[in-house]
Amino acid sequence: MFAIETTNLTKYYGKSRGIVDVNLSVEKGDFFGFIGPNGAGKSTTIRTLLGLISPTNGIAKVLGKNITEAPTDILSNIGYLPSETVFYHGMKAREILKLSADLRNQDCKKEAETLCERLELDPSKKIEELSFGNRKKVGIICALQHQPQLYILDEPTSGLDPLMQREFFSILEERNQNGATVFLSSHILSEVGRHCKHAAVIREGQILVSDSIDKLGHTGVKRVMLRGIKQIPEMMHTKDIKVENDIVQFLYDGKPEQLLKELSSLSFEDINISDPDLEEIFMHYYIKEEK
């Protein structure tokens, strides 16, 4: 069963593009990373899933239910962290947490306390007295305190220091091991590579790839580094060519034997052929292909 399933989900803001034909499947119990550059449509997708905006076209099902048919049922099983965590002025962190719990008809006092301790947040502070990172923690606790089945987190770690990021991910991993699904959008490719089981890349409103992190890491693309070469070799299937003194680096996504044939006709001093790291692979989806 899928925790999130979208079919040709499309959103236009008037004439400007939000997302186009997004097909996403996130299985229950998954730890899913959703990555893409600014303005690619990550937040639009997430906001559509939550019913904050309605799709122009297509269907989105969350926890098996259509978002347009049972929004409150779905929301009661979701913990959502918006990318910008803003709360009501003049309220204390504790009051915000209580308000959210009350609106859910749940007593989350104990869990909230535990989370405040683990994330080192003083809940007696007023929202406007808190720093950006601490305000983020209030948002995180709001999303976590009622222990939902599905976490939808929009850029959760921005503003958190590395120590807090680690603590935050260890909480998420505990929840995930207990059966909850985690869906997070991020800019930080390494954190997606480290924590997620699956990932999807979105660019210009369209999903470019969606697969397991393992498979994404073995794309057949090779990073080739040649030392002691005078000029850039003219080869097919090369991308991201970098020249530095006498070192030429590029990514090769053709057939390996073709690569060897091409290389054999060149003269160079040293060679290194390796798998690119995940960050590099993701980066390639980010950068527009130049034609």
Binding site: L50, G51, L52, P71, L75, Y80, P82, V86, F87, H89
Partner: peptide, 14 residues
């Protein structure tokens, strides 16, 4: 205006 709408409308209330 205050950007609190995300918080409010993602609580399970219609």
């Amino acid at each position: 205006k205050d950007r609190t709408v995300d918080f409010l409308l993602t609580q399970p209330v219609s």
